[in-house]
Structures are given as structure tokens and as C-alpha cells.
Design a protein around this nucleic acid. Sequence first.
DNA 1: TAAAAGCCGACGATATTTGTCGGCTTTAGT
DNA 2: ACTAAAGCCGACAAATATCGTCGGCTTTTA
Lengths: 134, 134
Amino acid sequence: MLKISTKSQYGLRALVYLAISKEKINSLRTISKKEGISFDYLEKILSRLEKTGLVKARKGVLGGYFLAKHPKKIKISEILKVLEGDTFLVKCIGADKKFHCIRARKCLAKNLWRKIQDSINSTLNSITLADLIK
Amino acid sequence: MLKISTKSQYGLRALVYLAISKEKINSLRTISKKEGISFDYLEKILSRLEKTGLVKARKGVLGGYFLAKHPKKIKISEILKVLEGDTFLVKCIGADKKFHCIRARKCLAKNLWRKIQDSINSTLNSITLADLIK
DNA sequence: TAAAAGCCGACGATATTTGTCGGCTTTAGT
DNA sequence: ACTAAAGCCGACAAATATCGTCGGCTTTTA
Ligand code: FES
Ligand code: FES
């Protein structure tokens, strides 16, 4: 249905929150409350962003999350790649080696999907987190 | 997951098939066989394309489907709109009057979704079925 | 040592997508 | 007129993906 999952929407909002926050560090509880996002769900999301190095976490009391790099250095494409998985519009043009479409040779539809994919990618690569907050 | 449904993929392939076919009219059975798409499923898809005026149908023996207009006159955006429904990346920027996001006023994420949406839309509006088959 | 925070894996609910089925109507050819 | 081939239609079933919850663990500071 060509839609962005709420996971990505939540993830992006959390990152924006961290980016504009006056605090050095923000706890999951704070973010989830302020943004109105399920605590447990957001935890999974931030945990994933942490594993891939977009945010860092500190455990214990007074712990929380903070951006791993300056917002200028965080491209939207990175974020979405982490949250949406290897995000290709259709399998036929995906990078999955195990999948090879038998129709690919003479398929005219494929070219369309690739064009759309390229258009999306170039948009995603040209925008950073910093671009959103000014 | 930002993916194109197989419904749209099938629909587009069927339209391409009709566009490049030497026959004036092609039956559902023929298309489904040649394209390797479930007969019953494709029926629903073509039926929907028929209702919205992209293809026309003739009933009875020797019946089938054919394009309602010249491929040059069929924009990809039209096709996808029919098949994917009112396709907005996220609810917050959708046209649904009943939905109004309480965060919209000061939400920075929204601007991103809109940019991506615009980029996709302009691509979809600039390509016609005819562009795919040459 | 207790409380606050993050970490992790399993699970369940819900929604969407994908597909199937049966019976109906229309049409061309015999 | 009859029949077979085709499209039309609505209900339903299966498969998959998304969304969210839960319980117990570890780490850290006061
Ligand atoms: S159907 Fe796979 S490349 Fe077109
Ligand atoms: S969350 Fe609805 S506009 Fe951003």
C-alpha cells in the first residue's frame, strides 16, 4: 500500500526529539510520554537504532538515549534503512541474491519500479536529520 | 515497509500486456496464463481497472479486455491510485478529513513525509504506460 | 542496596494482503 | 434455442506483516 510504517514514524519522531532537545540525554520514558508513543514499542525501536549506531544509550539511573552523531551527519536514508529493513519497492529489483525473477529479462514493468525506487532513494539521500529541524 | 503490493505489480503487467499485444482484445485466461498470475486474483484486479475506466471489457465468447485509451494517455499515477487506493505515505499528510493529527501543528517529521510524497507523486505523474513499452 | 534506567526474547492481537470459490449474466457460434 | 466461453460479483479463507505487550534480566547512580 506504499506506506511508511508507524515504526519508522515513531523512530523518526524520537530522533527529532533527541535532536532538538536541550538535554544531553533523554530517557525512554520521557520520550514516550512527550511523543505519545507506547513505551514498550518505542523501546524496541530505539534499541534497534542503538545497535546500528545511530543513537547511543547509557544504562542506569539518569541514563537514556542521545544521538551518536551530529544531525547533519545522519541521512534519512540511514534511518529508514535501519527501521524498514532493506527497503526495496518490489522483490524483482531487490538485492536479495536468493531471489531471481524468471521474467526479469524481458519485463517492462521492472523499469518503472526502478525509476520510482531511484527517485525515492535520491530524496532520502539528500535530506539529513538536521534539515528537518531548522 | 514501503513496498508495492503484488496487486499493483500484477495490474501493471496486465496493462503492459494489453498495451503491447498485437490482438485487439485479450481474455483474462490468456493474460493470466502468459503472465503466470492467478486467474481469480487477476480477475479482481482487471475488474477494478474496468470500473475506473482504464480498461474496457467485452463479455461472452471471444470477449476479454482491452485498453480504454491510448497508452500515452494513461499515467502511472492513475493506475496506482486505482490499485493501491488513496495512497499516502502516512495518515498525517493524507486527505482523510476524518483524521486530524493533534501533533500536526508543530510536528517536524511531517515535512519529511511530505517531501518524499511529493517526490514520488511527481515521478508517477511524469510517466505514462507508453513510456514503459518503448 | 534500592530504584531507575536500558536490554532482550517470546508472545499475542490486529490489520492487510493475497488468493479462492460458487454462482450469476452476457455473448457468439451452431 | 442451446451451449460453451467469457466477464461480473460478493463472500470467505489463508498467509503474512505490523503493532504492541510482557516478564525477567543487567547496569548504574544515589
Ligand atoms: S515480474 Fe520480475 S522483473 Fe518483472
Ligand atoms: S505525528 Fe501527525 S503530523 Fe507528525
